[in-house]
Design a protein around this nucleic acid. Structure first.
Ligand SMILES: [Mn+2]
Ligand SMILES: [Mn+2]
Ligand SMILES: [Zn+2]
Ligand SMILES: [Zn+2]
Lengths: 143, 143
DNA sequence: TCAATAAAGGAGAATGATTCTCTTTTGATA
DNA sequence: TATCAAAAGAGAATCATTCTCCTTTATTGA
């Protein structure tokens, strides 16, 4: 997502285009792996040294409410943010708290078919998220 | 799970049997739907008026670490606890913050088969949890 | 271009769930 | 029944997040 796309999305949602909002969205995209508010703050302070903590939280909330980003929960008491908007699931290691995206259309179709056939009485499904918990085995972490 | 079962489990894990631990486990079981620490506290104070807040948190932590209960995350910044230990998934409504258990062996087998066939490079799967997000449509809540 | 103004940002205090520290009590063991 | 490590109690501390209040700014349309 480039700046122009970000601007367009903000306008679409009736949000004012501010340097802070653009910086925060860019930060999430750049930082990639589902950063915390604190990581975003640290990153942004390099170019916007005066941004307030509350601004970051308020912007994040506004972006979530307008569907420009998503919240991601983990086992820890710190919210994570995700600018990748295509339907996807997450690989998660509780040891390293690392989150990676997992895309699997075959899986999504399988789930759709399953729940279409076998509905859940008393419940209207809106979305299904898989938390795939385990350990990353690549070089950068044994966890 | 009855008191005797609880006692047995505590002994198995080398945990001392204390009135507080039994009360807290009983509370989670009795309260059922994935209570918060606060709800557990309120419930327990009826019979143990002097229990300390920190004790509840410490006991909950010990029970989680020893596999007697599980933590459940939601979109909110409050931990929920689950004494139902069989493999299951959760139905969740963000509006009401209600969590219900969802058991589906057919689904579990389907997922096992899928990931057995199609592994995830660089990742060793330990568990898969579905968060089924939507709205409850039964009498007790429209949410 | 500029004034009006609602929306957004800055600063720092407040909040609140959770954790920590320190002291006292208690369950398990022999 | 004494011993002692484990656990509980009390209350302060922590810290991610939210709130309040004031100032600044993006947008709009005259
Ligand atoms: Mn918190
Ligand atoms: Mn909190
Ligand atoms: Zn993601
Ligand atoms: Zn459950």
């Amino acid at each position: 997502m480039k700046i122009d796309e970000i601007r367009k999305k903000l306008i679409e949602k009736g949000l004012k285009i501010t340097p802070q909002r653009i910086a925060i969205l860019e930060a999430i995209i750049k930082l990639n792996n589902h950063p915390t508010a604190e990581l975003i703050l640290d990153y942004i302070r390099k170019t916007h040294p005066n941004i307030a903590t509350a601004t970051v939280y308020k912007v994040l909330e506004a972006l979530v409410e307008n569907g420009l980003i998503k919240k991601v929960q983990t086992e820890r008491d710190i919210m994570r943010y995700d600018a990748f908007l295509e339907k996807h699931h997450h690989l998660y290691s509780s040891e390293s708290d690392r989150i990676e995206d997992y895309l699997d259309d075959e899986l999504n179709e399988m789930l759709s078919r399953h729940f279409e056939k076998k509905g859940i009485p008393g419940f209207k499904i809106e979305d299904i998220k898989l938390q795939i918990i385990g350990k990353f085995t690549d070089k950068s972490s044994t966890k």
